[in-house]
Design a protein around this nucleic acid. Structure first.
Lengths: 231, 231
DNA sequence: CAAAATCGGTATCTGGAGATACAGAATAGG
DNA sequence: CCTATTCTGTATCTCCAGATACCGATTTTG
């Protein structure tokens, strides 16, 4: 019954490194449920009791949260192969903290939280990899969040820009940086307004610290960039 | 050899719910190493290859990170029963992202990352709980980070104060809130300066939204508080 | 109990960043 | 290839929040 989804499932991060036969066995053991939703359907609603980790098999969905004053804010856009609810699965939370809604027709795989660590006595070797994958996924989520906190903690726009560029430099080793983000997205990521960011970048260009044209950036004065990276 | 640490180990979050005999078995299986450090010793240094999750059996230690410009920033203070490195353990990182240094004489238990998920064929039932604990610890770290991001993303001081109070109200259901933090700590948590925070709180009191005296706060106009909670 | 240290509230001054508006560049689309 | 749309840089204005300083209240400690 799940065969037709296999080409998707094989590429889901939770199943990395597990052979098709292994996945088949595991799914047999996990006894997942598949839900089919029309556009606009609620997949899970905030406050509902939590039971499963979700995997998007087909379509797209939004994760949104209601702020205290009642505004709905879309936090993530889920697409094929994405998973959701993985953080809540093993926390002590018993209800969903967010709402997931089908943005287009969706098919979702639900993995029961209590079967994930394995009820069966003999833990098959695939299952072990599965758990490792799970741990990796959660860990990396935490690492990304941590990185985000680091950026958000920097007070000045200049500091944020410098840190951002330096991180790219440290990763690539090149002073020539090609960004995949446009100005709006970058400003959003750094949690500042776009004009303010542009203003600051222009100042930095005037000062001869960096140069840029559209999405191409170049570090000119690395020392200065480092010095300014924390305020 | 590890017996003398048992009273500590029993209370380590990773071992919650596991009986003493179970812990003994597990430690036998995990083959942990104990390190003893004098004040000021480096327990792990940033960049060093990562191999173990650490557990503080005795003493206190600091987790610090070097910023790009070379400043050392203490990020966490570890005390007895605290664990460190648990986020890195199952990520794809191969080196420590931070430095851990003994603040006073320390004894540290190191659990090898590759043994945690279990090499032994028959996964004992305690081991399953252990893994669940591990998952819970990481998940809850991620949840805390997420919460932190939420607060950091709020731009205005007023918004932060409102959200903070509302969260306490939602948890306790009482409009009377007793804080465990002093002003400095609260300002720190909200990532704002203390005088600015005090100024804003006083304004809110004038406006009849809240009242407070030292660490006791009272919500007077709940509606207004909600309305202002996001700017 | 007195002196010292910590803590909380307030005032002033200043700067940095947001909002808004607009124009020119780049890109997309017919 | 020309039009429409999106993207980017820049200017102006305003104001929120940080830095600093100081005073009174509270707590600590010798």
């Amino acid at each position: 019954m799940l065969e037709k989804y296999f080409d998707v499932i094989v590429n889901v991060s939770l199943f990395y490194g597990i052979e098709r036969t292994g996945i088949a066995n595991m799914l047999n053991c996990l006894k997942p449920r598949v839900g089919i939703y029309k556009k606009g359907d609620y997949i899970v609603t905030s406050g509902q009791t939590y039971e499963n980790v979700g995997v998007v098999l087909k379509g797209t969905a939004t994760v949104s949260k209601e702020s205290i004053s009642g505004n709905r804010i879309v936090m993530t856009l889920l697409k094929e192969r994405d998973i959701f609810g993985e953080i809540v699965a093993f926390s002590s939370m018993t209800t969903w903290p967010a709402t997931v809604q089908a943005q287009e027709a969706c098919e979702i795989l639900f993995l029961p939280r209590n079967k994930i660590v394995g009820d069966c006595d003999q833990m098959c070797s695939w299952h072990r990899i599965f758990i490792q994958n799970f741990l990796r996924v959660i860990s990396e989520r935490a690492i990304v969040l941590n990185k985000k906190v680091e950026y958000l903690t920097i007070k000045s726009i200049r500091g944020k820009i410098c840190s951002f560029l330096l991180e790219h430099y440290n990763k690539s080793g090149s002073k020539e940086i090609e960004l995949a983000l446009n100005r709006n997205e970058l400003a959003d990521f750094l949690n500042v307004s776009r004009p303010s960011m542009s203003r600051e970048m222009s100042k930095m260009r005037e000062e001869g610290v960096i140069d840029f044209h559209l999405s191409t950036f170049r570090i000119i004065d690395l020392q200065a960039l480092k010095a300014m990276s924390e305020l």
